[in-house]
Nucleic acid binder design. Sequence first.
DNA 1: ACATTTATGTCAACATAGCTGACATAATTC
DNA 2: GAATTATGTCAGCTATGTTGACATAAATGT
Lengths: 174, 174
Amino acid sequence: MTASKAPRRLARDDETAQDPGEQVLRESAELMFFGYRSLTQDPDKILAERDYGRAHHRALHFIGRQPGLSVAGLLDILGVTKQSLARVLKPLVDDGLVEQHVGENDRRQRLLFLTEEGFAFEERLSAPQRARLTRAFREAGPEAVEGFRAVLELMMDAEQRKQALTVIAGAKTP
Amino acid sequence: MTASKAPRRLARDDETAQDPGEQVLRESAELMFFGYRSLTQDPDKILAERDYGRAHHRALHFIGRQPGLSVAGLLDILGVTKQSLARVLKPLVDDGLVEQHVGENDRRQRLLFLTEEGFAFEERLSAPQRARLTRAFREAGPEAVEGFRAVLELMMDAEQRKQALTVIAGAKTP
DNA sequence: ACATTTATGTCAACATAGCTGACATAATTC
DNA sequence: GAATTATGTCAGCTATGTTGACATAAATGT
């Protein structure tokens, strides 16, 4: 059952860089799919308890990472519309997980903070993720971890990367 | 600015394995989020042309990877319900991107194949993903790529990993 | 042979999380 | 005082997931 025209299955499993074969590239895309799914599955279960979804986790996560983040800042990170964010943020505020404080410099802004409860819940959500990553990192070793992070970083466009790294650095946009 | 009770922001950027700090773990989860988004954004644009979504791409991808895959097999890989898959698969069949052949051994099965057009479209969808990965892999180097793949693999549960690796190996379930 | 199980398809109803467009309010800036 | 900005909100649409119920054809078990 060898393909007559298009050579669809040729690459070998070794030689994963330089000019990686189509096979390796497809495998890597699959690994991203499966890996991402693994990483989100534990918090998803916990979120279901409260009638929240993955979007709520993301909001809690980034507010936790950058307390005092503005709504516009969060919109920028998440890359969704404000209407979409509102549907996630409002319940979080109503349920007392997130607080909005009027901005000191600019009083139009609503700066976002986690409440004690919000912080605790976010911890619960991210704990299994951190556990999963810790286990994977321990088994893979420090060099693999560096590679993992480097590739993910390089996978983004220059602009995205810049923004992501700003977020990751925990720096507030000045 | 040392935390008095809960040390929320302590870890330094080096020392990313062994017992990685909370900071590094949260960063890594963020990198997965941003990386996954980057990887899916190009095909998403192309899919929009035809009124398809990411789910259609996934189906096309895995059928392309394992021609002759059964519906049950695809359900297993995607981890969705058959009703959910049907909504994706039917249009693909109707539009002539996927063909279903009655199984030789088991004539209840509908074995899935990409048509020429389906193959071409899947190529178009995955081309920008492969380009993105190729660029990232080239810049990160072979060792980083190995680390990237190793961590993603180890991120899964044993069962998931087993299934994922079966898929990746391109082996049909016997 | 007949009953059961399996592989697949389909109908209906519902939930989540994205989108666009339109409009409102308050605060800031020009 | 006018224009812009940050935020909120209403309404409706789409994509993709879910459950539950039922139908058909083929394979399997007894």
